[in-house]
């Protein structure tokens, strides 16, 4: 068994608008001199610390938790799960 850090990023699915990201882009970033930025998306990140056999199982376990407990609403959001060695 090993300890892993698992990062769960929850964001709106592609095609679904993200008003917060748009406001930060248009009303803050683009009003400065940072014209090279073309998009900002907001997301929420949860950091799990988990003890599992390997990275694959750790990822699957966290995915299962996210699905079971409705940690994100699949109707609007998607999750990206990244696993790192602790």
């Amino acid at each position: 068994m090993a300890i892993f850090n698992v990062h769960v990023t929850i964001e709106n699915k592609p095609g679904i608008s993200d008003p917060e990201g748009e406001t930060i882009l248009n009303d803050l970033v683009l009003k400065g001199t940072h014209s090279s930025i073309s998009k900002i998306k907001t997301a929420k990140m949860l950091k799990f610390t988990i003890k599992e056999k390997d990275k694959k199982i750790a990822k699957a376990k966290v995915q299962e938790i996210c699905d079971d407990l409705r940690i994100y609403n699949p109707m609007v959001s998607k999750v990206t799960i990244d696993v790192f060695d602790a």
Binding site: P19, E20, T23, I24, D27, L28, G32
Partner: peptide, 14 residues
């Protein structure tokens, strides 16, 4: 202001 996006007041402060 600005829908409280980012943090309340953070965008209006600019």
């Amino acid at each position: 202001s600005y829908g409280d996006r980012l943090r309340s007041g953070a965008i209006a402060a600019h």
